[in-house]
Amino acid sequence: MASREAGEELESFAAEVGSGGPVAVVGGRTRWEVGGACQEETRLVRAPAGVRGFDPADMTIRVGAGTPVTELDAVLAEAGQRVNLPLLPGATVGGLLAVGRDDVHALGRGRLRDALLEAVYVADDGRLVTAGGPTVKNVSGFDLCRLLVGSLGTLGLVGEVILRTWPRPLGQQWLVGPCDPVELRRRLFSPSSILWDGHTVWVHLEGHESDVEAEAELARSLGCSPADGPPPLPAHRVPTGELKADGFPGSYLVQVGTGSAYVSEPFPLPEPDPAVVALHQRLKAQFDPGGRLNPGRDPLAAS
């Protein structure tokens, strides 16, 4: 039996990437600078776009990596579903996965890295490689999908993906107030987001209408009041482990329970363990010994 067949568009994407010369895949350029500027004279390619397969009862969707995330969301909305990717206008599915930055709702909806079930990518030698599988549960072989999320295209150029979808909730509500974020998290059952700037908390609730109403009532009793939405996220992401008693320099917003904070001023990332750096080097050497995929980019420098 042959392995899963790739479509024509993927074949031509692979041919375009080829097997020689520096090459990078470009999406919506919304986070183009994350992890370092792309080296000059790098050939730019675009991944195929469009929905390739969607049966709402499977709760999975197959799309070209070049598909704008808002377009994907519109298709899913018709079936009352969504994916766990940030709905960044202009951003492509492949770009969001390559950067791997969680949506603001990661606390309740889960991490972005868990959204990817299968990826077909072009390896450094121009061959198409399938990682993972099409089902929501799969432990067949090593989990290359997790490795691809957040790899900035340095291990392979993703052409097509299968994502897990979720039902859209019936009710939702943002609230804001001068509360204690830890207390709020302890008392609310499953908020989808808690953001904290050192003084004020923004909390998002979603689910069945009556549950959202009951949880909102609880949040109001703790000092919150209804809000239109979250504040804009500051530009730079840092691990919350770096948060000191007096916060970060400049303004910041902590994404409670997900390990991430966003800061307005650039902030040095913690120095990685040399053994972790060595693993990164060995992975790059295994997957792209010639260094032709997305040259100039370093996942360890991405925040």
């Binding site: 890295r113 957040g150 919350t240």
Partner: peptide
């Protein structure tokens, strides 16, 4: 001995934790 991932933040770089789980 090496720690993959981060218990109370996020670990910059590749998701070595994710690649290791299920290995």
């Amino acid at each position: 001995s090496v720690v993959l991932g981060d218990a109370d933040g996020f670990a910059p770089g590749l998701d070595l934790r994710g690649a290791y789980v299920g290995s």
